[in-house]
Nucleic acid binder design. Structure first.
Lengths: 207, 207
DNA sequence: ACTGGACGTTACCGGTCTGTAACATTGCCC
DNA sequence: GGGCAATGTTACAGACCGGTAACGTCCAGT
């Protein structure tokens, strides 16, 4: 009932992993530090020795989520090197994976909703990470030769964010279930107007 | 410092209004019943005599939000009677009004995020209301003669939900700021393919 | 073998939260 | 005016939370 995965991981790592899971399931305000420590197979004192406060732990978890999220861009490039349009389609499919089953949506967006105070330290991390991801998506759209790349990126971005939050209010079987079809239609609509380059547009990587 | 608007309204109405405002500002878990009662110019006992529990109060607030949201469909019809396409454009502009300034997004979506337990009574109200609104939007798209009406409705729906949640994580100046432009482009893209009828399509109201 | 740092255990503090009990007060309606 | 329902006031219970203090334990490096 207590140990979660007390294998080779140090307490700090176990705490972050456990905290992320519990935060995800119950929300950052819905779980106490005592429950986190116990579930991580340690105790509250050790938790407070690694993280000065619960807010610090939340920030650390957000940074962990951000680090994990950055990996997708590396995976995309390695999956379809030099083919940004193909990467864009894979991105969409990866995004759709975030809203299957009894999804809890995006950890960061959820945390931003729960931490209503705009000056909460975690909010800065969330804003930075979200902005970085949106910019990376826009970069992908530009490199894919999309004319209105910024607008397509914002469109896809809002679609994903909406799908994640909508899966919690309406349910994953609602509009969120059509995320791929909607996204594909949108990419097609933006790709057909004044494309600077077609697929495999290696030459357009400059900007 | 205490009375909020103790005019002609009965305590029950004052409590709901105050609770909605405080829930919106601080989240449903971020404000206590005592603060709500005091801000509403009454006390905790009266609150508990009208609402058996805090959860009941949350449900009542969600129903109040739902009732308020239903009004938009009446307003749309009266603004452009018999012109569903025009209503659709006005809907988009009304939607964009929800993500201006320091928006806190959608009260219902936020509550769904905070109330992580899927069996919370408020979740049912939220799901019903959200589904009803999405269906009303789809009905508008069908009546506007859009071929893939359901898909356009889901697209616009995800855009709005995404804009509302994104305004809290990235900020209202991010992708959410382009909601109108994105939505217009999407409506245009769906309207140009196999339109069953053009504007003022009174004949297409059957289905 | 010693030592120092990381970790575990227990107990506690002060605060806040939801929810209730008992009682006083107001105001409306007959 | 008398009575009754709605409301206000105070106090309290029980639980939980974030955070800290004091002390014990273990293990790696020298």
């Amino acid at each position: 009932m207590e140990t979660d995965d007390s294998g080779p991981l140090r307490p700090r790592e176990r705490i972050i992993r456990t905290a992320r899971e519990l935060f995800r399931r119950h929300g950052v305000r819905g779980v106490g530090v005592d429950a986190i420590a116990e579930q991580a197979g340690t105790n509250k004192m050790t938790l407070y020795r690694h993280f000065g406060s619960k807010d610090d732990l939340i920030v650390a978890c957000m940074r962990d989520v951000a680090l994990e999220g950055d990996q997708i861009w590396i995976d995309l490039e390695s999956a379809h090197p030099g083919d940004p349009l193909a990467q864009l389609h894979v991105w969409l499919r990866e995004a759709a994976e975030c809203v299957v089953g009894d999804s809890r949506g995006c950890d960061m967006a959820n945390a931003a909703v729960e931490l209503a105070e705009t000056d909460h330290p975690a909010r800065h991390v969330i804003e930075e990470c979200k902005t970085a991801h949106r910019n990376a998506l826009a970069k992908l759209c530009r490199e894919a030769g999309i004319a209105k790349a910024e607008l397509l990126a914002d469109s896809l971005w809002l679609l994903l964010e909406g799908a994640q939050v909508s899966s919690q209010s309406i349910g994953a079987a609602g509009p969120s279930a059509h995320l791929i079809a909607i996204g594909e239609a949108m990419i097609a609509a933006y790709a057909q107007q004044a494309p600077k380059a077609k697929t495999k547009a290696r030459a357009a990587v400059s900007a």
